[in-house]
Write a protein that binds this DNA or RNA. Structure first.
Length: 504
RNA sequence: GCGGGAGUAACUCAGUUGGUAGAGUCACAGCCUUCCAAGCUGUUGGUCGCGGGUUCGAGUCCCGUCUCCCGCUCCA
């Protein structure tokens, strides 16, 4: 993001957040109690938008012969998260330098050993688990206790030969200050809770930090129940939870969020081709729903920075006002997950290929989209302010959310032009006819121009108006949100007309 | 977690040296209106984020805390 646009970008976000609250898209969680950090509620229009996005995803991903649906429980056996690596890798001990306020992951802090007697420094070789433990104990254990542990491996100082004098020192790589760190604090990003009324460690379970594991552990259940052959996928939409250190940017980084994930199981060796296939599919999905390609970006994870499970990984990023932000990840997870679950559960996760008579552990191509993040991206993308003519011939700013009709919370609004001559009655009848077929809104208050603008602000693609001509020939005007152009349509054809526009 | 900014009606914001809390918009009920908001009349709506303290008296001063925004940091 260019610096010069920073202020207007911030203003854009503020206007959007304000509109979201005022019109019932997004509210802050527990607002009357002062709010809960990083949690948001979807209001009447927000939930429609979110549902529409999820529906479009579900149709695109599961209305095909090679993908099945699933809805796994949020609570899973705790061993799942040991197998997945989340217990081990989702924990980051962090320290802050008291001198320069820099924050580090503890394992990135440089360290040396020093003799507390003669003061000379030396490199020591200790078993790695001892090294790790010493780091974790930093600040919590006295120098003597540290010296005792080191003495089990190096009893004497190599220089002055005194016993039990070696202590560790942590060096800030930013300001060079020695031992100025806060106590190590661990942030496990998984929320913990307890099964049953007793809070003992045997009953600990986690709120899932991703929906994917529910798919992996059900791989063979789904495969056999649906009689699918490889390659095939399993799709799931659901909430996930991460105890983020910092939440940020409205819906972008929250502690509770919703994922739309599809895990595609393939024969090893075919994974690279499927990876490319799904990348293309997923990018197209966003474009078809109205996102300009130039507002979307591929970000490839650097080979050295890939997650522990991944062979290749691309993110689809959207141009948010605060910069590029990931809205979906397409990852080649290899056979890591199934192999680990096989190891930890003792149950086979292998697939038997009837045709080639081979038995193997499938590779997995993951498409993992954020439903919450996508909702925010679609909101940002749809927000427009434009000059619109007024009745007096002047110009006013028109705020309009240009949602794709499939995503719009309200599909059509119905107005009587004026509240007399039988127009309200006809308009009411039209409303009742349309309501079972799509989300509609009836409005008869104020001038019709005001009603149009109100609908623009929530992204309603069509406004139907009953006027005096309706009384003569049974036609109404249908006003297009984006062009503001009107077209006369017969009441008989109205439902068909709108449905064809809304569904295509 | 650090630094900076902010929090007063549903929204955007005023609020003087500490002295009974305001405006516009929105909403609602009418009136008027024959196609692109801000005509008329009336009405609803605020423990000034929350909790302490100072004071005869706090939206205003002090302390703490929560939340939001920006920048760092972090983001298996």
């Amino acid at each position: 993001m260019a610096k010069s646009n920073q202020k207007s970008d911030t203003q854009l976000m503020e206007k959007l957040v304000s509109l979201c609250k005022r019109r019932g898209f997004i509210f802050q969680s527990s607002e009357i109690y002062g709010g809960l950090n990083g949690a948001w509620d979807y209001g009447p229009l927000g939930v429609e938008l979110l549902r529409n996005i999820k529906d479009e995803w579900w149709k695109a991903m599961t209305y095909r012969e090679d993908v099945e649906g699933l809805d796994a429980a949020i609570l899973m056996h705790p061993r799942v998260w040991e197998a997945s690596g989340h217990v081990e890798n989702f924990t980051d001990p962090m320290v802050d330098c008291k001198q320069c306020k820099a924050r580090y992951r503890l394992d990135y802090v440089s360290r040396k050993f020093r003799c507390s007697s003669c003061g000379r420094s030396v490199n020591l070789n200790l078993p790695s688990e001892v090294m790790d433990d010493l780091l974790l104990q930093h600040g919590k254990m006295g120098a003597d206790a540290v010296a005792d542990i080191i003495a089990q491996y190096h009893n004497n100082c190599p220089f002055c030969k005194k016993e039990k004098t070696m202590v560790q020192q942590l060096v800030c790589t930013n300001c060079g200050t020695v031992d100025s760190f806060t106590e190590a604090r661990t942030f496990n990003l998984m929320f913990k809770t307890y099964v049953g009324p007793v809070e003992d460690s045997g009953a600990v379970v986690y709120l899932r930090p991703e929906t994917a594991q529910g798919i992996f552990v059900n791989f063979l259940n789904v495969q056999s129940a649906s009689r699918q052959k490889l390659p095939f996928g399993i799709a799931q939409i659901g909430k996930a939870f991460r105890n983020e250190i910092n939440t940020k940017n409205f819906l972008f980084r929250t502690r509770e969020f919703e994922q739309m994930e599809m895990q595609f199981f393939v024969k090893p060796g075919t994974d690279v081709d499927w990876f490319e296939y799904w990348r293309e599919q997923r990018m197209n999905w966003f474009v078809k729903l109205g996102m300009p390609r130039e507002k979307l970006n591929w970000h490839q994870h650097e080979p050295g920075k890939l997650a522990h499970y991944a062979k290749d990984a691309y993110d689809i990023e959207f141009a948010f006002p605060f910069g590029w932000g990931e809205i979906e990840g397409i990852h080649n997870r290899t056979n890591f997950d199934l192999s680990r679950h096989e190891e930890y559960s003792g149950k086979t996760m292998k697939y038997f290929d009837e045709e080639t008579k081979e038995k193997y552990t499938p590779f997995i191509i993951e498409t993992s989209a954020g439903a919450s993040r996508s909702t925010m991206a679609f909101l940002v993308n749809s927000y427009n302010e434009e000059e619109a003519p007024t009745a007096e011939g002047g110009a006013e700013t028109r705020v309009v959310l240009k949602f794709h009709p499939k995503l719009a919370p309200i599909k059509a609004a119905i107005f009587p032009l004026v509240n007399r001559d039988g127009m309200p009655e006809i308009a009411k009848k039209i409303e009742q006819e349309l309501r079972p077929k799509m989300r509609v809104f009836y409005d008869d208050s104020g001038a019709v121009g005001r009603r149009y603008r109100r609908q623009d602000e929530v992204g309603t693609p069509f406004c139907v108006t009953v006027d005096s001509e309706t009384l003569e020939n049974q036609t109404v005007t249908v006003r297009d949100r984006d062009s503001m152009a009107q077209e006369r349509v017969g009441i008989d054809n109205l439902s068909q007309y709108l449905l064809s526009k809304v569904l295509s």
